[in-house]
Design a protein around this nucleic acid. Structure first.
Lengths: 337, 337
DNA sequence: GCGCGGCGTGGAATCGATTCCATAGAATCG
DNA sequence: CGATTCTATGGAATCGATTCCACGCCGCGC
């Protein structure tokens, strides 16, 4: 009844050799009906549970996929993890979830751990310039897939969102609402989504003929506090914006608090559009307008992609569309320009 | 340069046997300075990365701890995971994070996976009555620790919060603000925290001489939607409450939306106190009053506890205190009783 | 100068499961 | 009925690292 039941114990109880027991349990057809029955019974009675490590050691397949997200506490990544996990489960793979905590050093630690655990594949929302263990990964030939973000110079399949399109949707919407001064709270340039959204914002502003004022552009680090700092800076400029666009949900929340502390109200005094459609953004007062991509779908796609690579099927990168969910945070009377 | 560098390759390059190479790399003192130097050089040159599975197989220690949370998308559990992970890292253990998704079947799947992976220990925020693989775990003698929640009939160390105290703090605060009709949005009775908070609420209401009306008591499932349903029901009763107490953060968010859709405002029209101090609760308009326990600390404690059990040190259950963080959601003028 | 203790090392066994190989016995065919 | 193929099986090798055992060699002591 102990957990130390090995296949030998099962074999002995069934009166067969370990080889035969293994064949029965792995569904090898070269087994007699009698052996099948007795081995299965013995396994059930003893509560046999194969040792995944021994199995993986011999058969060079661990049936585990490492998933390294940048920040578990960011609901967007939690959703990605959830989607990936469900997809893995459906293919009877196990997901090992690890958290880089927006920190390159910690990212390296977990990549190292994945490598020594000999996972069959790795999904990562990478950060940094691609130094450290990312290069080691490439050398180790472990199947790798990028999700949400990419790193230049890596020929790796990825699942990303159409950031340029998302930004364009947001800016077009705000422009249509009559805004001409939009403050942008961007992400770090060390992350691909940070760069893509930044560039797309500049382009969209130009395209719609809005005010191109460098004072309207700020950059945070995708964490909450930086959104507050950025919003405060934007609102205390000489000529503050009438609308804000935040490049991720955590910074949007930070901005929310900063705006409130300045005594201004989202929706009526100031429009706000955020990236990432977090579940509860629709429950707030006022509900937030967002540029959304389905994080769960992102995760599912990424998992399917890495399984494709692992199992030798062709794998193509995917770019998912973004869409605009208009809520009240951007449709109170627009402050006149 | 491939990842298939074994200790034999290292040994060969260094001109020693595999045994000696192993001794050098594991810091065994019975090695000569010459061997140490050459083995280390060879390992570095070849990019040797020991195979964790082979190592674990032989030495019966995987240096991995399984962490099974009820719902990764609940920020409270994401914080627990984060705390546990950091504590594990400090002790050079790896955390395998899995998500039960508030589903007993999925909980069993991952417990099974942990067992076959032969993790050294498991931390779980359990759900259900303790059937299924929870019993198998006990038999397998895998070190086990409960976090946040417990299951009756298991003699397992745990890290929990003082729920009774938390509820009492919340009710006392609301009573002091002049409320006599408090609506309670509780959790499921199948979860220990759901039961504890429910019972504590009844006791606190009685103790403070508030109205004991069964219509004021509702129960959700710790998910967002159920909080909205419960709040709607409470507010459309014959004599609606003037304050709400929600037993977790997701249900509080659901309630937030329901209240807004009813055209009432948190803070001025209706007080709200929530369990769990989610980062961004302080940023909302109005900021939410919460009964808080430090989720990260909960996770850290749980990890330390399970490592104590694994390494044979005595392990004592811990009950962490809760405290009240008063913000504006409960201090607008109290609606008169 | 001989013996004994200790250090460093190579070789082999081991962990648990899978898989190759050889073989015994049954089944099939001419 | 003998030769051959096929099937089920046991035994052994294997995966990669650790650890036990035994041995050679050095130095020290008598």
């Amino acid at each position: 009844m102990d957990s130390t039941v090995t296949i030998k114990d099962v074999a002995e109880r069934a009166g067969v050799s370990a080889g035969t027991a293994s064949r029965v349990l792995s569904g090898n057809p070269a087994t007699s009906a009698a052996a099948r029955e007795r081995v299965r019974a013995a396994a059930a009675e003893l509560g046999y549970r194969p040792d995944a490590r021994a199995r993986a050691l011999r058969s060079a397949r661990s049936h585990a996929v490492g998933l390294l997200v940048s920040d578990v506490r960011n609901p967007f990544f939690a959703d990605i993890a959830h989607g990936a996990e469900q997809a893995a489960l459906a293919a009877s793979y196990v997901t090992l979830l690890a958290n880089a905590n927006e920190d390159t050093a910690q990212q390296d630690i977990y990549l190292e751990a994945f490598l020594t655990q000999r996972v069959d594949g790795i999904i990562i929302a990478p950060q940094g310039e691609g130094g450290g263990n990312l290069r080691a990964l490439e050398r180790a030939r472990t199947p790798l897939v990028f999700v949400d973000r990419t790193v230049e110079g890596f020929d790796v399949p990825s699942v990303t969102a159409d950031n340029a399109q998302g930004v364009e949707l947001a800016v077009a919407h705000l422009a249509a609402e009559g805004h001409t001064r939009i403050g942008y709270i961007g992400g770090p340039r060390s992350v691909s989504t940070g760069r893509a959204r930044h560039d797309a914002f500049l382009a969209a502003v130009a395209r719609h003929g809005l005010e191109e004022d460098p004072e309207l552009i700020t950059a945070g680090d995708f964490r909450r506090a930086s959104g507050g700092t950025a919003a405060t800076a934007l609102l205390s400029g000489r000529k503050p914006p009438t609308a804000l666009l935040a490049a991720d949900s955590l910074m949007a929340v930070g901005a929310l608090g900063a705006v409130r502390r300045q005594g201004r109200r989202i929706g009526s005094d100031l429009a706000l559009v955020a990236f990432d459609n977090i579940d509860w953004f629709g429950e707030l007062a006022p509900p937030l307008t967002v540029v959304a991509h389905d994080a769960r779908e992102l995760g599912e796609h990424a998992m399917r992609l890495v399984l494709d690579v692992i199992e030798g099927r062709p794998a193509e990168s995917v770019v998912l569309p973004m869409h605009l969910v208009v809520r009240e945070s951007s449709t109170g009377r627009a402050a006149g320009a």
